[in-house]
């Protein structure tokens, strides 16, 4: 009995924070979803009205559509572009240093504070001839400046998020590729394997799991994150780049409809929990548990 005290003691601060900011919020979100709480912060239970409101919301179809487009295309960039970067920088370029350089470069968007990163894109998309894209289009096609963020908001948010997310997959794929024994490639060369067969028979099997993992992981985070969209277009113009989680955020913190916002969140939370379950299955969980060897 006595020896249990110590580990629990060491876990207490962790558990406290988790209880306060994970467990309680999940419970509160669930309860709040059935109220029409607003700025007065009163718990008025209204049954399923919030969920009926979601379905009949005039913006419902656009937001669902946007969410699908956004998540789908960003995910494609996050996985395939990441795979391309990983292959180029850790397999096709045999020099470790330069591979590392390119990977480091692609890490920049991820470690740049979101506000600064979005600022860089604001310049690229700037509506005047000062913006990079407009400079290029006027130089090559002598087009008039385009207000990119107003005309193509979805493309913009997909690009911005895609470039941030690509580094995640890139790092994971790279380390998977690098962990393939070099002898395998040499053996394949001796056996006269084609480039395609090296990819298909040696590289692909070793990154199959990482790809699955990255896909589900990024799906999970894309479904619920909106920081960059908030900063770049704030869902606008009107609702053209508004996605589900951002809509929930706007409802709660802009319109102060906490109850309705919670209902929108709750649906995301449920989807997220299901996806997390899938992730745990992919993770080969038991391998990570090692038992104590002191009694």
């Amino acid at each position: 009995m006595k020896k249990w005290v110590l580990p629990y003691l060491m876990l207490t601060p962790f558990l406290l924070l988790v209880l306060l900011f994970f467990v309680t919020p999940v419970v509160i979100t669930t309860i709040m979803a059935f109220t029409n709480m607003d700025y007065s912060m009163e718990w008025n239970f209204i049954g399923l009205q919030n969920f009926e409101k979601i379905v009949s919301d005039p913006n419902f179809s656009q937001i669902v559509f946007n969410t699908f487009i956004y998540v789908g295309f960003t995910l494609l960039i996050n996985v395939f572009f990441a795979l391309l970067l990983a292959l180029l920088s850790s397999y096709y370029i045999p020099f470790e240093q330069s591979g590392l350089f390119f990977r480091a470069l692609w890490m920049l968007p991820r470690i740049t504070p979101p506000v600064v990163y979005v600022l860089l894109w604001l310049w690229i998309f700037d509506a005047s001839e000062y913006g990079l894209l407009n400079t290029l289009t006027s130089f090559f096609f002598s087009n008039d400046p385009i207000a990119w963020l107003i005309d193509h908001p979805m493309t913009a948010i997909i690009l911005v998020n895609g470039m941030v997310g690509a580094s995640f997959g890139m790092i994971i794929f790279s380390s998977a590729i690098q962990s393939i024994p070099r002898d395998l490639f040499k053996a394949a060369q001796v056996d006269g394997a084609s480039e395609w067969s090296v990819f298909k028979d040696i590289i692909l099997p070793s990154i199959k799991w990482p790809i699955m993992f990255v896909t589900v992981w990024q799906l999970l985070s894309l479904l619920t994150s909106y920081e960059y969209i908030l900063l770049l277009t704030d869902g606008g113009p009107v609702f053209e780049s508004e996605v589900w989680p951002l809509y929930s955020y706007h409802k709660a913190f802009k319109n102060l409809e906490f109850g309705y916002g919670s209902a929108l969140s709750l649906i995301l939370v449920i989807i997220a929990i299901l996806l997390t379950g899938v992730l745990l299955k992919l993770f080969k969980f038991n391998r990570m548990i090692q038992s104590s060897r002191i009694e």
Partner: peptide, 12 residues
């Protein structure tokens, strides 16, 4: 995805 819980965290 903890950001989905922001509303409730606000309440806490």
């Amino acid at each position: 995805p903890s950001v989905a819980l922001l509303i409730a965290v606000f309440y806490v």
